[in-house]
Simulated scan of single mutants.
Amino acid sequence: MEKRALLIDFDGTLVDSEVVHYDSWQHVLSPFDIHYTEQAFCLEFAGVPTLQAAAVIKARHNLDVSAQWLCEQKNQQFVLTSEQVKPRLLVGVKAFLNAAKQQFTLVLVTGSTRNEAIPVLAHYELLDLFSATICKDDVINPKPDPEPYLKALERLSIKPQEAFALEDSTTGLQSATAAGVQTIVIPHEYSKSQDHSKASFIANDISEAWEYIQKNTYIETI
Score class of each variant (00 low, 15 high):
206 I>F: 05
157 S>P: 02
139 V>I: 00
80 L>S: 11
4 R>H: 11
4 R>I: 05
142 P>C: 10
30 S>P: 04
9 D>R: 01
49 P>Y: 00
15 V>P: 02
219 I>G: 00
48 V>S: 04
183 T>P: 00
171 T>Q: 05
200 S>R: 09
127 L>H: 12
118 I>M: 14
32 F>E: 13
149 Y>Q: 08
20 V>F: 12
145 D>M: 01
75 N>A: 13
162 E>S: 15
58 K>Q: 15
85 V>I: 13
164 F>N: 00
88 R>Y: 10
155 R>Y: 07
128 D>K: 11
215 K>V: 09
11 D>F: 06
114 R>Q: 14
215 K>E: 13
121 L>S: 06
77 Q>D: 11
45 F>A: 05
79 V>H: 00
4 R>F: 02
16 D>M: 02
8 I>L: 04
87 P>L: 06
61 H>Y: 13
204 N>G: 14
146 P>A: 04
143 K>Q: 02
177 T>D: 14
25 W>C: 07
40 A>P: 04
3 K>I: 05
154 E>N: 15
126 L>S: 05
111 G>V: 11
160 P>M: 10
182 Q>V: 08
188 H>P: 00
186 I>D: 03
16 D>G: 07
165 A>Y: 02
166 L>S: 13
195 D>Q: 03
21 H>I: 07
32 F>N: 12
120 V>P: 07
112 S>K: 03
203 A>I: 02
35 H>K: 15
